[in-house]
C-alpha cells in the first residue's frame, strides 16, 4: 500500500520528491505552496494525526526546513495491512522573509506548533490567527533557535552584565 501511496502522491502533485525514508517512515519533499493540499490529501488517505511540526535551520543553504510528521490512530482504515508507514513531509522556506502557509485549516493541532516555531525561528505563518508569544518572556532581536543567534554573546550581554550585589562579610 505504501508504494501505491507514494505513486499516487507523485501522480497528484507536481514537485513531489520521495526522499530516503526507513521502514517506519516515508520521507516526502514538497514545495512550500503544496503543503496544505498535500496535508489535505494525506488526511483523506487516513493520516488523521499530525504528530508534530519541526523546524531545522540550514544556515549554509540559507533556508529553513519544516518537517510535518503525520501518523494515524486507526490501522485498519489506513492501508488495511497494519504495517503502514508514517509520513515525514518536508518543505523548505527561505531564511529571508521566511513565511509558510498555516496548516490549521487541515489540522487544528498545528496552532501551538506553528506558534512555537514562529517564536523560536521567526517564521511567519500566513493565516495563523494569533502569532503571539507562547513560551518566551523576552524579546530577542534574532529568534533564539536560529543558528546565527549567538547564545554565548547573548548571555554575556544580558545575564553576565548584571552586577553582583555587594555584600558585607
Amino acid at each position: 500500500m505504501t508504494s501505491s501511496l507514494s505513486t499516487r502522491l507523485d501522480a497528484t502533485f507536481k514537485g513531489v520528491e520521495l526522499g530516503s525514508g526507513d521502514d517506519d517512515r516515508l520521507a516526502v519533499s514538497i514545495p512550500r505552496e503544496a503543503v496544505v493540499p498535500v496535508l489535505t490529501f494525506l488526511k483523506e488517505e487516513g493520516y488523521d494525526y499530525l504528530q508534530l511540526i519541526s523546524c531545522v535551520d540550514w544556515i549554509d543553504r540559507g533556508e529553513f526546513e519544516l518537517v510535518y510528521l503525520l501518523s494515524f490512530y486507526t490501522e485498519d482504515e489506513v492501508g488495511g495491512d497494519g504495517g503502514k508507514q508514517d509520513v515525514l513531509l518536508k518543505t523548505t522556506v527561505p531564511r529571508e522573509q521566511a513565511s509558510a502557509p498555516t496548516a490549521i485549516g487541515v489540522f487544528a493541532i498545528a496552532e501551538p506548533h506553528e506558534r512555537e516555531i514562529h517564536e523560536l525561528y521567526g517564521i511567519h505563518f500566513e493565516g495563523h490567527p494569533r502569532l503571539t508569544p507562547l513560551l518566551l518572556d523576552r524579546d530577542y532581536e534574532i529568534p533564539p533557535f536560529r543558528k546565527d543567534f549567538d547564545t554565548k554573546q547573548y548571555v554575556a550581554d544580558v545575564f553576565d552584565r548584571v552586577p553582583p550585589v555587594e555584600e558585607e562579610g
Partner: peptide, 12 residues
Amino acid sequence: WDSYNTINQLDK
C-alpha cells in the same frame, strides 16, 4: 550556563 533564557547566578 549558555542558554538564552536562564539567568545564571541566582544571588544577583
